[in-house]
Design a protein around this nucleic acid. Sequence first.
RNA 1: UCCCUGGUAGCUCAGCUGGUUAGAGCACAUGACUGUUAAUCAUGGGGUCGCUGGUUCAAGUCCAGCCCGGGGAGCCA
Length: 485
Amino acid sequence: MDITPIKSALDDEALTGTTITVAGWVRTFRNDRFIALNDGSTIRNLQCVIDQNAVDAATRARFTTSASVRCTGTLVPSQGSGQRVELQVADVAVLGDSDAEAYPIQPKKHSLEFLRENAHLRFRTNTYSAIFRIRHQVSFGIHEYFDSLGYCYFHSPVITASDAEGAGEMFRVSTLDVKRPPLTEGGDVDWKEDFFGAEARLTVSGQLQAENAATALGKVYTFGPTFRAENSNTTRHLAEFWMVEPEAAFLDLHGDMDLAEGLCKHLIARVLRNSLDDLKFLDARLKEEEATKPKEQRSELGLVDRLRFVLDNPFERITYDQAIDILLRSKPYQKKQFQFPVEWGVDLQSEHERYLVEKHFKKPVIVTGYPAGIKAFYMRVNSPGDFGYSEKGTTVAAMDVLFPGIGEIIGGSQREERLDVLEQRMDEMHVPKGELWWYLDTRRFGTVPHAGFGLGLERFVLFVTGMGNIRDVIPFPRTPKSAAF
RNA sequence: UCCCUGGUAGCUCAGCUGGUUAGAGCACAUGACUGUUAAUCAUGGGGUCGCUGGUUCAAGUCCAGCCCGGGGAGCCA
């Protein structure tokens, strides 16, 4: 039996007048006659009209919220005003009952907190089904973008024996007995006895391995789960998240910025093209939510308009020096409204990034040329004439893409390809060179200028969906003290 | 980890300065309904007031500790 997706039933005008079978989950059953059926193919429901003479009362009583149902009938123009077509049901089967008393999700508005606690069922709501369809569009668009530019999808390992990547605290991977681990003569845990014969951890980044690949395959990108054991309790952090990390040989900082901006725009364009129903739903939801907020906290543009605006305008590209200048001349600085100091050499705080993006430029901003002291060892040291070079101190070819409401959505850089400079920086920052010999080999044998970045998938989905909490844009969020489901 | 804030019915929330039997809307159950759009109408059931201890004649309400959620900050993507 062919099952027609509800999306096709609603959109394909050639199906009107034909007999089709649809299958999905009941959203509501009204007037003992109308099933609003959803199968996940679209946010819209198909109205299935039951003939009460043909379907007995006992069966009709089983059309409860979230029961799974299969309906066969004729697709006809609707007599009601809420939809273009509806299904005149000739045959209906309840595939799986849903006890209305026990089922937690009701046909009403629920708080996101409650739905988060029912993460296994929240996909059945309009909001979350929209989010995860959009997440799919973004994921697929990532492959589409890099493939179209000749990038090779590269699978970096999830388990690593190196903790020198410096991107954050790592989770340990071990098969040793936690209560009685083997010990060395000195009384320490003997990791040689562990599964990998060394201390192993979950990756915090595939970048270093991607650099190995880029200096052979030319252009690569990784896309997979990444793990950080930081005790971060915010709306923008997860312990397990998905990251995209392109890395390309013969690419400089400007090319890197072009690549990052191009990716963001490609993804936004794709979502606008393929997920407009879902976006419009989230847009309306957002407006409703914002109506309860004071005027100054409301955003000027709706979700769809915001996405179009980002798509249509170039990202602002400034140096760290310029960012500091703007902040020093800003009203909040002069009125002493910033909590953290603004001076050359210290990192930009959330409040500073927010000011630049949301108040000053009112669009995405790429900041380059950060002081070397606050950035990772592998970033290229700037020389006079480089964009981002500063008279005030040593800077590196870093670039952070800052988005309104979210802050840093992409962090990247041109990499230090000069072996001597790289080794000196590793010494300064106490990065163990011995452990990273395989990484340094890229600079020993045919080193080339190259660049890349990391984009947090969930942060991007957060922006595209207009959601406020990163735990709502990943199916089963892992955060400190929480790994349920 | 730090700061702020909250936890009362399945959900969303009200409950004043401590004082009868802790309320509402929605949901749910039963009944009605052949054009509904989060359908509607009638009737009904439903509570360890987060946990533990304390103050008091009396605690949902006051105090202390703990647990959990939310917002913000740091770390970052």
